[in-house]
Design a protein around this nucleic acid. Structure first.
Lengths: 346, 346
DNA sequence: GTCTCTACTGTGAACGTGCACAGTCCACCA
DNA sequence: TGGTGGACTGTGCACGTTCACAGTAGAGAC
């Protein structure tokens, strides 16, 4: 009898439950639940009463209880399997991160940020993922042979990669920008503005973008009947310093260069410095084309002509693909077009 | 009889539960639970049996079930109540974000990233927070009068701010670096290296750091018996462009400036450009002191002498304070010392 | 009038865990 | 010998939801 009193008092302090809503609306739990799920097989009158009760009580579904019965976490992980340094320093990366957050937010799905840079972290993360504490993973990595992929497969956890994973066989979902076509576009731009001796500072060949941007360079040269000269090809590591070093080397080996396609804006910045130090002018003597449209592109003089990657759309598509996989669809590949941004350097 | 068959089959597909562990170890659920909580009042033999069973079955606690009964979410939000632009572009910010992630990770607490830049997002977020879908909030904001603070208070949700919230009364937890002392240190460095006409490009006075960095400048001038000249004080908005404009203005009004303390590296970059354009040399003619130790500080010529904020420690302390609050402690304020990084610009 | 079909509603049984409580066992002491 | 306390263990219930199922009412067909 009186033993319900403490319970009732406790209940008053707590957020309202579906039972409170049901009582308030004069229907059963089942009906409230159905309204919550979208309202199929619910009479208009009942739905309205439930909606009113929800508003009045300020009811919000208890995600833990829902998870427990649906066997779904209701959340998604954004997994950084990197040493973080390079990727995280890239401001475009933050666009990707917030893009994913808001895209997921529209589905009321929280994004859980997970870093797995160190082995200790990886050990902690693995059980978390295997136990399906998230419904899926947005996987960010730029290195060849990401061990996480194998783990995710084994855990039977849906995942979507950002960028084409290198050294992976078997089907998997990824969303990437069209690096090949982007590189082709930039080199075409250089050639069509009259340049003939076009050099390149490529990225690491074991990272996404590295291979394809170099291939795009070669293809476009070939299409314009320009012979491939391997002395005009250097390889950096995407850092500013490496761009400077590569440019210096290029200027030393081939003095008649009139354009250079650099696989990242950061490296392009370095290249600008080297060119300036050599007493040459950009773009008059040497045109410089970058890649990424990072903030660095506009912070330097002259502002960089570059290739913009659609980070915002990439994040949208990653989320869409992941949700599709969670819903049961198979994996898919999405390639998004890039955009040539013409400024003053080329 | 046979109706247990389907259940058993289904169970086989699913992750093991505490019951499976208990059966396997030959103990009761309660004992397993006690081992999971830290193992008080459990015999060594039982504990060992349970540990072995956990390892063998690969058992991981079901967080949803635990949440349901403990009334705790078991996660923490990292809340960006910003238009994102400025804050997110700052690479130090990513240090903060990963720092919080790993600090929480050590306690097995997932970090949920939430952006609340737009009104629509805020509307979505509010019920989520009020319903205690997270146990606490790491609040990132740089503007005066953050409306989120009031909401969090009303929802009775523990939170810790990054940086001192302006225009707030009442007690609240925050962790900040010692902007005042940082500014004093930099200006002292400028004066002690022989400069007398020290100008400043301050930050917006309605953002953290703005007020204090300016005050530190004034204090140190006073301590060295240098009269405050308001013509030597300009105010930018932390952007590179504003730094350039402010410096230009300073050079126009007071030609005898021999040093300038700039409240952010980004603005300092702009200032360098303006100085170079005026045909003056750094540090020979004008010494430039920055603030933040952002990557920009080393990307420019000459590399910036600047003040480094302890972002990594800030994130650690934010997490520590938040967990303390969640555990029932009252709010607290933490101020962390900055560090002078001497490079070539001053 | 009965039967069927549709649209809607209520109910009981899970989901996996923590906690309070009630034991049980054993050692120790008077 | 009985009592007392401490260390450990098992059990029932509750947490808030979804889902399958059973059930009801009313409309329409025959």
């Amino acid at each position: 009898m009186t033993d319900t009193a403490p319970r009732r008092r406790a209940r008053a302090q707590r957020p309202p439950t579906i039972i409170d809503v049901a009582e308030h609306a004069g229907v059963s739990r089942g009906t409230v639940s159905r309204v919550l799920q979208g309202g199929h097989n619910v009479s208009p009158a009942a739905r309205e009463a439930v909606d009113a009760a929800i508003r009045k009580l300020g009811y919000v579904v208890n995600r833990a209880a829902r998870s427990l019965v649906t066997q779904r976490a209701g959340s998604v992980a954004f997994l950084l399997s990197e040493t973080q340094d390079r990727l995280f320093a890239d401001p475009n990366f933050t666009t990707l991160l917030t893009g994913c957050t808001t895209a997921l937010g529209e589905h009321d799905i929280p994004l859980i940020l997970i870093t797995a840079g160190t082995d200790a972290e990886r050990r902690r993360i693995l059980p978390f993922l295997s136990a399906h504490h998230v419904d899926g993973v947005l996987l960010i990595s730029s290195h060849r042979g990401n061990p996480m992929i194998e783990h995710l497969r084994r855990a039977n956890l849906p995942f979507v990669c950002c960028g084409k994973p290198l050294g992976e066989r078997g089907t998997l979902s990824y969303v990437a920008s069209d690096d090949l076509e982007g590189a082709r576009t930039m080199v075409r731009h250089l050639i069509e503005s009259g340049r003939r001796r076009v050099a390149t500072i490529a990225g690491p060949q074991d990272m996404p973008g590295g291979l394809e941007r170099l291939q795009g360079y070669r293809e476009m040269l070939a299409e314009h009947g320009i012979a491939y000269d391997k002395r005009l090809v250097t390889t950096g590591d995407y850092s500013r310093a490496s761009g400077e070093a590569c440019m210096q080397q290029l200027l030393a080996t081939a003095k008649d260069i009139d354009a250079v396609f650099v696989a990242s804006d950061l490296m392009a910045d370095g290249a600008l410095a080297a060119i300036e130090r050599a007493g040459l002018r950009v773009p008059d003597d040497i045109a410089v084309g970058g890649f990424d449209d990072s903030p660095a592109a506009t912070a330097v003089h002259p502002p960089l002509t570059t290739i913009r990657q659609p980070w915002s759309r990439i994040s949208e598509m990653m989320v869409r693909q992941l949700l599709a996989q969670i819903a049961g669809e198979g994996p898919a590949t999405v390639i998004l077009p890039t955009e040539l941004v013409v400024r003053e350097s080329a």
